[in-house]
Design a protein around this nucleic acid. Sequence first.
DNA 1: TCTTGAACCTCTAGTCACTAGAGCAATTAG
DNA 2: CTAATTGCTCTAGTGACTAGAGGTTCAAGA
Lengths: 137, 137
Amino acid sequence: MYSIGDLSRRTGVKAPTIRYYEQMGLLEAPERSEGNQRRFAKAELERLAFIRHARDLGLTINSIRQLIGLSGHADRPCADADRIAKEQLASVRDRIAKLQKLEEELERIATCCTGETVGDCYVIRALSDHSLCGHEH
Amino acid sequence: MYSIGDLSRRTGVKAPTIRYYEQMGLLEAPERSEGNQRRFAKAELERLAFIRHARDLGLTINSIRQLIGLSGHADRPCADADRIAKEQLASVRDRIAKLQKLEEELERIATCCTGETVGDCYVIRALSDHSLCGHEH
DNA sequence: TCTTGAACCTCTAGTCACTAGAGCAATTAG
DNA sequence: CTAATTGCTCTAGTGACTAGAGGTTCAAGA
């Protein structure tokens, strides 16, 4: 039996966040002590590790809820779980591509500023004038 | 003189978002028609394009407010503008690095699932078990 | 056994950058 | 002149937490 603080230390998830996950239905309401404090079993520790891991991978609370729903039915085809992971992968790749364009452009903007005052600052001119951009966005 | 809809079409920023920017102090309160509708001058169109561009680059509303503050004083050194751009670049690079780790891991997870049912689904096992990860996160 | 201080409880509100909707008023095209 | 479109303000919702108030419980030392 772990207190919320134990769980927090073991998983690196802050206590208010654990309560939030419970509220969002990712964790089941745990047992309580006589004084109404949460007492978690090992299964909950493992589930929280799962949630933490999935969040680190960028899955939304909703996706995680779906995965938890799936894992309750070990006999069902795993195509859904696979689909969720693939969707997540696609979205991550998309975000990377967008950020790389930004990187390129910010690089140009931030390294080309040779002006002494704001009046001739390349940063500000580049932000004002889209035509200075290397590409569309 | 542009209506809010004109401005929206010209900059690709939705009308409610334009009002929001005004409320946040990024745009000055524009003139109004007799019937209390916003009428924007060309300067506001340009400033909105600036804001749009900066938002596309991932700058926060706060950073943009700072830049707008700077650009009002064309005689001040542009080191601040430069710093804001550099900070932004660093944060973008950071995000890219993190996402690339995720990509790697999701790739492994999503392409290795050969199980037929959730019970032996690699996706779910990998999410539960951090030790299956290729690296720390 | 008592006491102290840390950890815990619930509840509300705040964050960011919008977005959606209700319920009206003004403008514009035919 | 009328109908359709566009605009107005205001409130509330989003996601995933985080912070704070104001109170209760627990565990360890004296």
